[in-house]
Computed example of a mutant assay.
Amino acid sequence: MLKIVILVAMLLPASAQAAGYCLPQNGKDRIARDGICPTGYFGSGDCCEAFRADTKRAIPKIEGKACPAGFFKSQAYCVSFH
């Protein structure tokens, strides 16, 4: 069974394997892009990447819910105050 999973993963194009999952690069936060990127981030392919390593943390906003305490709404995201 494991061999089948490995074979399927190898046959998928790299873009399909990475879709929806953005890894941090150069110490900068990266999040999945959902339209316009939040404050402090810029679009880079399917991801939004922070301008600087100390950019405020952003998380996707859940539709119909308020941002958690300590966050404000920016586009489709919640961005930390600190």
Rank of each mutant, 00 (worst) to 15 (best):
Q25S: 08
Y77G: 04
A53C: 01
F81H: 09
A32D: 12
D34K: 13
V5A: 14
R57G: 00
M1G: 06
K73V: 13
G64I: 10
C78V: 00
D54M: 01
I59M: 10
C67V: 06
A32K: 13
R57T: 05
E63Q: 10
G45M: 00
P60V: 00
G27P: 08
S44R: 11
K65M: 12
A32P: 11
F51G: 05
A19G: 00
R57L: 06
A14L: 14
L23H: 08
G27D: 08
C67M: 08
C22Y: 02
M1C: 05
R33F: 03
H82P: 01
P13M: 11
Q75K: 14
A66M: 09
H82A: 10
K61R: 14
F42R: 10
M10E: 02
P68Y: 13
I62A: 12
S74H: 07
C48Y: 09
R57V: 05
R52Y: 12
Q75I: 02
T55M: 05
F81Y: 10
C22T: 01
C47Q: 06
I59F: 04
A66R: 14
A58K: 11
D29K: 05
C22P: 01
P68D: 12
G40V: 02
V79M: 04
Y41Q: 04
A32R: 13
I36C: 02
K73C: 04
C47D: 07
M1R: 03
L11E: 13
A66T: 11
G45L: 01
G40F: 02
K65N: 12
G27Q: 07
L2W: 10
A14D: 13
Q75R: 14
A76V: 01
A58R: 12
V8S: 06
D29Q: 15
K65E: 15
L12V: 12
G43P: 12
Q17N: 09
G40Y: 02
Y41H: 03
I59V: 13
R30P: 01
V5K: 12
G35R: 10
I6Y: 08
C67W: 08
I31V: 09
E49L: 07
A76F: 06
K56T: 03
K65W: 10
E49N: 06
G64L: 12
A58Q: 11
G64A: 13
F81C: 00
F71P: 08
E49Q: 14
P38G: 09
F72L: 07
G40T: 02
R52L: 09
C78M: 01
V8E: 04
P60Y: 06
D29T: 06
A50Q: 04
K73H: 03
M10S: 07
D29Y: 02
K28I: 02
I62L: 11
G20A: 07
A53Y: 04
F51H: 15
K28T: 07
D34T: 07
A69Q: 14
T55S: 15
A16D: 13
C67N: 09
P24F: 08
